[in-house]
Simulated assay, not measured.
Amino acid sequence: MNIKAIIEGKKEWRAHMARVKALPNDYQIVYEEIQKYLYKVGPIELTEGIGLLSGIVDLFEEGATRGKGVLDVTGSNVADFCDDLIKDSKTYLDQASINQKVSKAIKKATDK
């Protein structure tokens, strides 16, 4: 990654966060928790730009414009909302699980 791409990425992130800060407070709180959850679960799309997070902000902006509360948009179980967003995504947890299984299988096969 060259310096120009890094600078553009930072500009994109700052613009994204400005959109988040413009949301009502309850939306900001839920967005922050969703962001933490997604970073912990690790859908690979998060390393490829802010598309997924930007889509969440789009949804939140629309909900706020329509006067809905954030939990009317996400549902009361925000973790389920997040899981539905990434249900078809490959995650780093998946990779870790696969790597662990392969490592155990190889170790078991070579220990015989």
Rank of each mutant, 00 (worst) to 15 (best):
G63A: 03
Y39W: 14
V41E: 09
S54T: 11
E48H: 11
G42H: 14
E62D: 14
L52Q: 08
I56N: 03
I34F: 04
V57W: 05
T47L: 06
K36S: 10
I44M: 12
V57A: 01
I50T: 02
L59P: 00
Q28N: 11
V30H: 02
Y27T: 05
G55E: 11
G49M: 07
E33F: 00
Q35I: 00
T65S: 10
P43G: 10
V30M: 06
E62C: 01
Q28S: 12
S54Y: 01
E62M: 02
G55Q: 14
Q35W: 07
Y27P: 05
G42V: 05
Y39N: 12
Y31C: 11
G55R: 13
G63H: 03
E32A: 15
G63I: 00
V30P: 05
V57T: 04
L53Y: 02
I29M: 10
E48R: 15
I50N: 07
E32Y: 06
Y31Q: 10
A64D: 03
F60N: 07
I56W: 07
L53V: 03
Q28P: 09
T47N: 07
V57S: 02
I50H: 13
G42E: 10
L46C: 04
E45A: 15
I44V: 11
L38H: 08
I44P: 00
T47W: 00
D26M: 13
D26K: 15
L59R: 12
E62R: 06
Y31P: 11
E61V: 03
